[in-house]
């Protein structure tokens, strides 16, 4: 009962298609990504090296490194850079510690109840705009919930997001609320994949729970922690939605992040050349940082 497959060795189109499959399957994605990254990159470099007049009829003028030199003296830029760094360090740091702690608790005490985990993960999926609105409502100085709690506790009322001293803190709290779940989820996944044997061996060797955590859990989790931190840091460095709605960068520029500043330069001050220069700076430092981080943590393999 021999079953034939038709034409003896197939037609030439089929052979061509199969032979070039590795290129054909890659092509659509590559074309989209090349157009949408190469073109903007070239534009940014050209724009940053010119002075673009607000009047579209006037030609662009070559400006050399002028736009980049402005970075050195622009205090607003320095403020934005400082704010972005402060935000990144404190927000990501807090999220990591809370996420890890929560994951350890759930891993140890509650193993089944998946819906609990889903609830705890919910904030990271919600639209940042809705999150910002919610926290704006909570921080509201007059009728907000937070001041009601302060009042009940007999503490002084605060303007929170509107207060020069507390604005950054308020933004960080809202971000921590939204993104701790992300850390939590990754740590939970990491914990779930830990092998049992080393713990059994350690327990037999008499290692305390604390020692087991330092000597086994943390080293095992290291790659997951590294990736989680990298992803969160990249996101934190581009923070926009939350500050745009919650504080608008204020008060007194205390929460103005680099992304927000670029937006203002480009659209409010109508200075795309300078915006391009700042963008290139951001791009360069982000890529440099992530490359260093990936190499350092040996994530590439």
């Amino acid at each position: 009962m021999t079953v034939s497959i038709g034409a003896k060795f197939g037609n030439s189109f089929e052979r061509w298609f199969e032979r070039h499959l590795r290129v054909l399957m890659l092509a659509p994605a590559m074309l989209v990504l090349l157009t949408l990254t190469i073109f903007p990159s070239i534009y940014m470099i050209i724009a940053a090296a010119t002075r673009i007049s607000p009047n579209p009829d006037l030609p662009w003028q070559f400006a050399g490194a002028d736009n980049f030199l402005r970075l050195l003296t622009d205090e607003q830029f320095h403020v934005g850079l400082w704010n972005t760094m402060v935000f990144t360090v404190f927000a990501v740091g807090t999220e990591f510690l809370l996420g890890l702690g929560l994951a350890l608790l759930l891993d140890r005490y509650i193993r089944r109840l998946n819906f609990l985990k889903t609830i705890l993960m919910l904030p990271m999926m919600l639209p940042p705009v809705a999150v910002a609105i919610t926290w704006k409502l909570i921080y509201e100085p007059q009728f907000g919930v937070l001041n009601e709690i302060m009042f009940r506790l007999g503490l002084p009322l605060q303007a929170w997001a509107g207060d020069v001293r507390l604005a950054m803190f308020s933004v960080i709290v809202a971000d921590v609320w939204q993104w701790t779940p992300f850390m939590f989820l990754l740590m939970l996944a990491g914990l779930a994949s830990l092998p049992d044997e080393p713990y059994e061996a350690a327990a037999i060797d008499g290692a305390s729970a604390w020692r087991q955590f330092w000597d086994l859990t943390l080293p095992f989790l290291k790659p997951v922690i590294a990736i989680a931190l990298l992803l969160r840091i990249m996101d934190a460095l581009r923070l926009f939605d939350l500050v745009f709605i919650l504080t608008g960068g204020g008060p007194a520029d205390r929460t103005k992040t680099l992304s927000l500043y670029i937006y203002q330069v480009a659209y409010r001050f109508a200075d795309p050349s300078y915006a391009a220069a700042i963008s290139l700076f951001v791009l360069f430092t982000t890529v440099a940082f992530s490359t260093w981080f990936i190499k350092r943590m040996r994530l590439a393999d």
Partner: peptide, 13 residues
């Protein structure tokens, strides 16, 4: 007897 160097797996039977 057929040279199959360039023949797709499906046609090699």
């Amino acid at each position: 007897g057929d040279r199959v160097n360039d023949v797709l797996p499906k046609y090699r039977d």
